[in-house]
Every structure is written in C-alpha cells, then in structure tokens.
Write a protein that binds this DNA or RNA. Structure first.
Length: 426
RNA sequence: GCCCCCAUCGUCUAGAGGCCUAGGACGCUAGGUUCUCAUCCUAGUAACACCGGUUCGAAUCCGGUUGGGGGUGCCA
C-alpha cells in the first residue's frame, strides 16, 4: 500500500505555526515512507478564502520546501460530490432529514451514528474509545443546502485515497464521526495521528500575542526556513537520541509518528533563536554574500568577504547585518552612552590625536602593525592598551562592541580610519 | 456540567521494571580565552505532580487524587 497523506488547510490569510507543523509532519511521513504528500485547500468559506489567502498558504509551503506530489484539490469545486454522498447516505438509511426546530431554518440532513460504542487506534495516542451514549447524530448538510466540514472532509479523503490522516489534536473527537461516516460509505478507514497543540509560556494555545505565530512573520523577520523546519519538527518529536540539529534528509530518514509526543509543547523563542544561529553558521558563503549585498549594494566582493569573516560569529539573524553599517558608510549610528564615556572623557582628545598621528605614520596598515603601534603608544604614555582601544573603537565604529579592533581597522582602511579619528577629535 | 486525552529539570526532550546516585539540548550562573561584544572551551544549576497498590526491585505496570489540554455549533 502506498502511503498517501495530505495537508488540508482552510486559507484564512495567514498560516499558523501549529498548522505548518502538521504540514511538516505529513510531508516528513510521506517522504520517509516513499509515499505521496498532497494538498487539499478547504476553501468553502467564501468570505475568507480569497485567492490571496490561498497564495499565502502556497508561499509558506514553498518557503519551507514542502513540495506536493499531485495537483492540489480545491474543496470548493467538490460540492456536487459532497451532496451526492449525502444522498447516498440518505438512501442507505445512514442519514435522515430533520428540522431541528426553533430557528425556522428548515430541514437539515443529519448523519445517524451507529448506536454502538466506537473505537479507533490513534498512532500517537493509542486506543481511543467512546460510549454510544456520547456519540450524537450531527448535521452533514445545512438547511440552506451547503455541506458541512465533516462530510466534505471525509468524502474528499476518500476521493484522494488518503491512507494516513495526520492533523491537529482538535480533531480527535471528530474522528469518531468521520470513522462512522467512512464505514457507512463503505470506505477503508485510514490510520489516524493527532498532533498535540503548540502552546505559549502560559500553556495556552500559541497565538499572535505570544510573538511570531505565523510562518510569514518568521520569513519577514529574516529567520531561516530550515531552522524553523528543524525547530518545529523537534517540538513534539525527537529521534530517540541526543541529536537536535538535523538536516532535512536526516529528518526524512529518522521520522516516525510513533515517536511523536502525546502532550502539548511550548514554543520557546530562545531555543528557536539558538537553532536559527546554528543554521546561520552553516549557511553557505554565497548566501552570506547575497544577504550582505542586499543591504550594502555596490560593495566590493573582496571587501565583503573580509567584513563577513569578522561579523559572522556576531550575527544570529539576518537583520543584524544592519549592525555592520560602519564598514560601509560614514553616517553610521553612534552609541551615545559609550561616546560620552569614552570620547568626552578628560584627555581622550589628546589620546585620539596621538593615535591618529601614529597611525598616519605607519608604513603598513595591517592588524599586526596597528596593534604594535597602539601598544607602543600606550606604553610610552604609561597607560593600559584598553584606554586607547575603547575610544578608538567608538570613534571608528560608533559601537562599544564589535570585532577585533585591529582587524576591523585594517578592513576599514587607513583613509577612513584617519578621517573618523579626526572627526572624533574635532 | 459532561466526554476524551495528557503528566520527567523553567522550556524541548531521552527513558518502553533493574544499565537512573535520571542523560542531552536551550536558558541561566561561574570560570577560561580576549581590547570590547560575540564566538569557542570548562564547570555548575535544575525534574520523575501527589497518594496507594503490583513486584525481590518502578520514572517505567495498575488504581485514585490533583493539575493541564482538547471537545462539547446548521464553525473548520
């Protein structure tokens, strides 16, 4: 039997990380099993399911590399099939029409539960059962003639030949209904796996109030798709050993549903940030180059390489590249607190003037010479090198922290360094 | 209210009766490296919710309590 599973989002304009994790688990499961990963767009809500909302889903999947194996099914095109199934259930005695009364809406079609206890095996939660008394009949076609979610979902899963339904925990109770309908329609019962929710620090469902909650936000904020992918996989699953940073092919090889956790997991932004930095470290040189070029267009390639070498261990997310602005422009921001402390201190001006003159006289403007020059000056003045280093750093970069001073000066170059020192003196 | 599910460090987790004086990761703390920041290295911090069983032996099995989550629509 070929595994066929699906991601079935209802496009609402943004894709929640919980939904995306369900998509990721479906994708991994299909790839691991050598099966098919399918997409069904549940766009029956005409109000919210705009073409833009559908595009948002497709873009999020593309960003995370979740490729589908067949053309997506659009549920809005399936209305006739849904209604035909309802008719079939009606004529086989598995459904009946009823005016639930009071509202004056008219007759709806209800599915008739079998009147016996039901059970199914969830791959993650184990055997789940429910007494007949707790299994009520339910509407499958509204009195206005529109099919309800449960009907559409089941009919389309049959049509798509779904063998494994991997979805959110909020569908656990629905599964008894779905299994009953599947049986009434004479269809195979797929395997079910219900994924626990992603929660916030309070244990409540993770929402936009808790930080980036939608895939698009992670993308906009410059995080890496592979980092989000890896982190989300690990949120509720582990390979069984101590490995955490796992490349995609490793995840495909290792992923199994029975290792998925049965309890909710908190999204930890700190750990995600760490994961992102792990992927940043591993990002190819070309990617670093491209990212710097985007922000500092026109910069020389060799110059960029040197800057990247100095900045790489200091950047944990792409937007932080903006902090390297002093390598490229003269209007870099200045940390006022640090400037007040280091540049306006008594005697600071004289020290900067001395270092300026010393550096102007250097025959070679390289890190080793810059260090030797600064140390010699410090010694002749009877002060610690740090007392020179800090003011020079602020004068040249505007920042209290940053790369090795001498290497930074070497990269920025004699002309700019001397000019910036002069500016600081005057 | 009723139904279903769940329960190991602050967080993500390893653990399927003896390998557990409970391991890893993030975070945090301390130390090392260092001109700063970051990286890197080392060490430390911290958990089997509770109460009963079963067993020679329980984080692991069973029951209860408590706590948490989900569901309870002519929403999806």
């Amino acid at each position: 039997m070929t595994v066929r599973c699906r991601f079935a989002p209802s496009p609402t304009g943004s894709v929640h990380i919980g939904n995306m994790r369900a998509a990721i688990y479906n994708w991994l499961f299909a790839r691991h099993a050598g099966g098919r990963f399918l997409l069904r767009v549940e766009d029956t809500d005409r109000e919210r399911s705009t073409p833009e909302a559908v595009q948002t889903v497709l873009r999020a999947m593309e960003w995370l590399g979740l490729n589908v194996d067949e053309e997506p099914m659009y549920q809005s095109t399936r209305r006739a099939a849904h209604l035909a199934a309802a008719e079939k259930l009606l004529s086989s005695g598995h459904a009946y029409k009823l005016d639930k009364g009071g509202t004056g809406k008219g007759e709806a079609t209800l599915f008739k539960m079998p009147g016996r206890d039901m059970a199914f095996r969830d791959v993650i939660k184990g055997d789940l059962r429910k007494d007949a008394a707790n299994l009520q009949d339910f509407v499958i076609v509204r009195s206005d003639g529109n099919p309800v979610f449960h009907l559409a979902n089941v009919v389309d899963d049959i049509e798509m030949g779904i063998t494994h339904v991997i979805r959110g925990d909020d569908h656990v109770e629905n599964t008894f209904r779905h299994v009953a309908m599947l049986e009434a329609l004479g269809a195979e019962i797929p395997a079910y796996a219900h994924l626990p929710m992603i929660t916030n620090a309070q244990g409540k469902p993770y929402s936009k109030r808790d930080g980036a909650a939608f895939v698009g936000e992670f993308q906009e904020q410059g995080y890496l798709a592979e980092a989000l992918f890896n982190y989300l996989v690990l949120l509720g699953w582990s390979p069984g050993d101590d490995r955490e940073v796992l490349m995609r092919d490793e995840l495909v090889a290792l992923f199994t549903l029975d290792r998925v956790q049965a309890k909710p997991a908190q999204f930890d932004m700190q750990k995600f940030l760490w994961m992102n930095s792990e992927y940043l470290k591993r990002a190819p040189a070309g990617e670093w180059m491209r990212r710097f070029r985007d922000i500092y267009p026109g910069a020389d390639e060799q110059y960029l390489e040197k800057v990247i070498e100095l900045m790489k261990p200091r950047i944990k997310a792409w937007p932080e590249i903006a902090g390297a602005v002093y390598f490229f422009r003269e209007d870099f921001p200045v940390d006022q607190e640090a400037a007040n402390k280091r540049l306006k201190a008594p005697g600071a001006r004289e020290l900067l003037a001395a270092i300026h003159d010393g550096y102007q006289a250097l025959t070679s403007f390289d890190a080793a010479s810059l260090e030797a020059g600064l140390r010699a000056l410090a010694e002749s003045k009877g002060i610690k090198p740090a007392e020179l280093i800090h003011p020079v750093r602020i004068a040249v970069s505007g920042q209290p922290g940053g790369p090795s001073l001498y290497h930074m000066l070497e990269v920025i170059g004699r002309d700019k360094v001397l000019a910036r020192l002069n500016t600081a003196i005057s």
